[in-house]
Design a protein around this nucleic acid. Structure first.
Lengths: 112, 112
DNA sequence: TGGACATTTAACCTTTCGGTTGACGATTAT
DNA sequence: ATAATCGTCAACCGAAAGGTTAAATGTCCA
């Protein structure tokens, strides 16, 4: 994988991995519990978790014989920033917000 | 490819394809011109464009013997929406903005 | 009509991906 | 001590990704 975005987008391109991330939105989970709803081997899930971990999308901490998986949503920031270059979101909204703010603050209270 | 997000994320996972999208941000381009800066065959670029097209990220219109490629950034919306489920952007920024706005508007001019 | 240009297709190759199974190391429980 | 549990590793497999080159298709120009 060349750069950070490569591994991020690639990690997010698999539906199983996206499902895992969604599950982790709820709460931290042990590897076995992550694997439970899927119809594939634990080894396969373990590999998916490794990919998510290398992309920075989750962190894993071993406590006893259980390895806990934790969502790290900040890793998605780089994706977000890249997408912003295509004007899909904030730019528009923030611009609108800023204009609103300017208007609100520059006008007298009864000016609107 | 199972669903829409699969093909979108997969399309975005390749650095050549992301570069192409960035180039198209500037202006519409013919296939040959898209290929020019890359050190790979035209056939390879043609395949990349097919992948981008199938993901909906670009559209292609043939005029004469030239096929024009046009960026379709709206296709990124689904990605955006999915990412928003992880609270990476607007929510945070807008909340911050709203708090700021509340503060600004509710305080007397010398209140800060 | 023939040739140059623009792009895709076909066939092929190598590497990566996503899955399997089976063995293994580490930890906990009996 | 022994057995069960948690998770990874290694070896393997078929399919897909990303590239190549060479031929084919369409379109414009002279």
């Amino acid at each position: 994988m060349e750069n950070r975005l490569d591994s991020l987008f690639a990690a997010l391109a698999d539906p199983t991995r996206r499902s895992i991330l969604t599950m982790l939105l709820e709460d931290d989970m042990a590897v076995t519990d992550v694997a439970e709803p899927f119809q594939m081997s634990l080894a396969a899930i373990s590999k998916h978790l490794t990919i998510l971990s290398r992309a920075g999308l989750i962190s894993q901490e071993k406590r006893g014989r259980v390895k806990w998986c934790k969502l790290e949503p900040d890793a998605m920031r780089d994706v977000t920033i890249w997408l912003q270059g295509f004007g899909q979101f904030e730019p528009v909204h923030l611009d609108a917000f800023e204009r609103f703010l300017q208007t609100e603050l520059s006008l007298p209270p009864d000016g609107g």
